[in-house]
Design a protein around this nucleic acid. Sequence first.
DNA 1: AATAACTTGCACAGTACTGTGCAAGTTATT
DNA 2: AATAACTTGCACAGTACTGTGCAAGTTATT
Lengths: 218, 218
Amino acid sequence: MTTPAPRRPRQDAVDNRAGILSAATTAIAHDPQASIDTIARSAGLSRRALYGHFADRNALVTEIIDAGAERFNRIALSVTDPDAQLALARLTSLLWQEAAHVQVAASIALDDAHLASTGKALAPLRAAVAAILQRGQDDNTLRTDVDVATLARLVEEAARAAITRVDAALPEARSLAVRTTLSMAGLSWRETVALLEQHPEILGDPAADAAPATDVER
Amino acid sequence: MTTPAPRRPRQDAVDNRAGILSAATTAIAHDPQASIDTIARSAGLSRRALYGHFADRNALVTEIIDAGAERFNRIALSVTDPDAQLALARLTSLLWQEAAHVQVAASIALDDAHLASTGKALAPLRAAVAAILQRGQDDNTLRTDVDVATLARLVEEAARAAITRVDAALPEARSLAVRTTLSMAGLSWRETVALLEQHPEILGDPAADAAPATDVER
DNA sequence: AATAACTTGCACAGTACTGTGCAAGTTATT
DNA sequence: AATAACTTGCACAGTACTGTGCAAGTTATT
């Protein structure tokens, strides 16, 4: 006998799998301990069907973490401003756009059960942040009263607070996240406001082209 | 028949009750979902005995929240500096001393199950913080690019981050908590360092009376 | 010394899950 | 139209708890 026809997965199954991941992302962002039943039902499936797509809860959570982490790490690599203040501002602004996924990371990252795997997945992002902060300390554009490792943690927490504890629907939410992060990095609020006025493209304002002194490479 | 002799509780029972509260404070700070068994055993008692002192898990948690909140609220009332920057610095410094209790509050406050009761208990503290921030915005000594309510949340999160995410055993932990809070309130890190140099008593350093210009950088 | 107060250990009922097996259905693909 | 792939619903075993009752033991207080 030959190999049994290797048919590829049915389209509805592919969609359902994606639906589960999406539902789980939302549900877990809301409550890291959301039950399998809650997730399955909010994806329009039975609990039993979910186990046809994921071996167990951990497999599902791991896949969400990895997917989210990959987006973050990709963003981190895309930020290349030599100026540390600008780099930190741009990174925060870009990450904010991924708010839904960031919230998952924020929730799971605080969950002891997955601390280790989350940490590994986010390593590139954290390395990028540490590099930016180190650069800023070296040329004295960011605070030097805290060592880089501690500063990285504080900046991460500040960003997390701004993203998870402020209504993302507010028009100034994104700007607030950026200003919060820069505050934690040592700038006064006036410096931060001035910086963002000089670089309106950081906040992705489409009507910001006509701004006075915009001269940043693309 | 007369009333059955109203004897007061035995000393060992009083001690055990206090021991449970103390063990629960520590355990819950570490993990808000710590089980009754874990708490009872770490207090050196059986799970069954704990139920002799508290009706259920909620009664225990409520008592911890209320006790912690009372300490915080008392501290908040004791801070009377007219200068908003100083007031915020002193408040943070004093609260930091209650680290163990702060950590419980930090953990429980993030726990949806007790969000409401924690909020009610901490209302006086939050009102005091809001008053300080409002004062600082009125006389332009704190940032005015964020409304008071949002700023209060961000400052609270910054303090929480500095207290829970940094090793409290480090000698500079307390100073760090204060600097973090002031950063979030809009000051640059240099302004913060200067403020603390001018008011060494805020950090409660006993040998800081004569200190002219202690270098904070390392 | 007497005794009320307290603690322990065990059994038990209840809750809220996770993960698996299986038969009976439904649906996409060939 | 045939069929492999998928989903459902149900039953079941297992885990990790919470909270209660009760008998037997221990300890502080009178």
